[in-house]
Design a protein around this nucleic acid. Structure first.
Lengths: 184, 184
DNA sequence: CTGGTGGTGTACCGATCGGTACCCTATATG
DNA sequence: CATATAGGGTACCGATCGGTACACCACCAG
């Protein structure tokens, strides 16, 4: 039962941190929105950073699960799945509460690269990159590592374009660029 | 003389905001580091947001001036200059105080897309994109707009890779991808 | 000299920050 | 029943947040 309650806290915190920012969100607000008391909050999490870390862990799990599931639903051949990544990004960008990548935002707010929050953000990106690398390997492409790094550039670039510049062609542009890079 | 003093304030604020974040940096700290009094600070800037806006304006000017100057020093043909962009990015990533793109960070910390800080961040990206579009047009490339959008994807992706993932091949990877996209 | 005027610093505002001491209650065990 | 214990809430901690009231002081005009 406690696990469920704690998970509910993390889920709520995830939403507020994502929409509102980390430093801009106070523990008082989270306490007010979850209806729990501050004491109970700090019984579950030793500090605000701990709560942020838990939220990022949940985000990593939810996002990658969703991404992989959508990719595998849209295409079956490994090479097609790499391209489908950008269709999935497009779905994400078009969702009403899209506010950019939570891990990019976390990295923006925590300047110390050795901070656990930064390490976790880097780990999230690495996991996605290795998923793409596996797809490239399965597709029999030359230098799957390089392909994965290039696809990641397009993916992160598209996220920034969609979020900062509010481009509505970001996912499409990235997919076309990816197609060219893969056909070489 | 006063103009110089105010510029000095903005310059100092720019450095601290960039290294430390916007919400994480208090006005008290800026006041302490610049040696000025809080009253004088608020005589020059009506609010913290005003100071942030001034810092972003300075950053936009300094960064684009530096980028264009370095690009033009490294190459002369327009197509070569597009590729030189990524060499310049590499120089930036290797500089000891690189902490990512200030406008991406600003967009991460201010969730309201209509906020002046967000508008200014988008404007900065658009100015760079139009610079690349002009280069593509001068180079006689097909669809300069699409080329510019693709190059921006690679540029922003490389910034994220260098900052979040701490990739040390980001600029090189982006340059190779750009070369492939331009040769098509 | 007197009397403005504009820029400076001191000291402070209420609100909020992350975090905690303390009490209270529900339940399990004797 | 009494009692130990864990998880809950109230109320508060000192520090810091963005921002301001007000006294001060150098300057120039008369």
């Amino acid at each position: 039962m406690r696990q469920t309650k704690k998970d509910e806290l993390v889920e709520k915190a995830l939403g507020v941190f994502y929409q509102n920012g980390f430093h801009a969100t106070g523990m008082d607000r989270l306490v007010a929105e979850t209806g729990i008391s501050k004491t109970s909050m700090y019984k579950h999490f030793n500090s605000k950073d701990d709560l942020i870390l838990a939220a990022l862990e949940l985000r990593d799990r939810l996002f990658r699960d969703w991404m992989v599931q959508r990719i595998e639903a849209l295409a079956s051949a490994p090479a097609d799945r790499i391209l489908a990544l950008f269709d999935v990004l497009g779905e994400w960008f078009d969702s009403p509460d899209f506010k950019g990548c939570m891990f990019i935002k976390a990295s923006a707010e925590f300047p110390d690269a050795a901070h656990p929050i930064r390490r976790q953000s880097a780990a999230h990106k690495r996991l996605i990159q290795s998923y793409i690398r596996d797809l490239a390997r399965q597709a029999g492409l030359n230098d799957p590592d390089r392909i994965a790094r290039q696809m990641m550039l397009l993916k992160e670039g598209a996220i920034i374009a969609a979020h900062v510049t509010r481009s509505d062609t970001a996912a499409h542009d990235a997919k076309e660029a990816a197609r060219q890079l893969l056909s070489a």
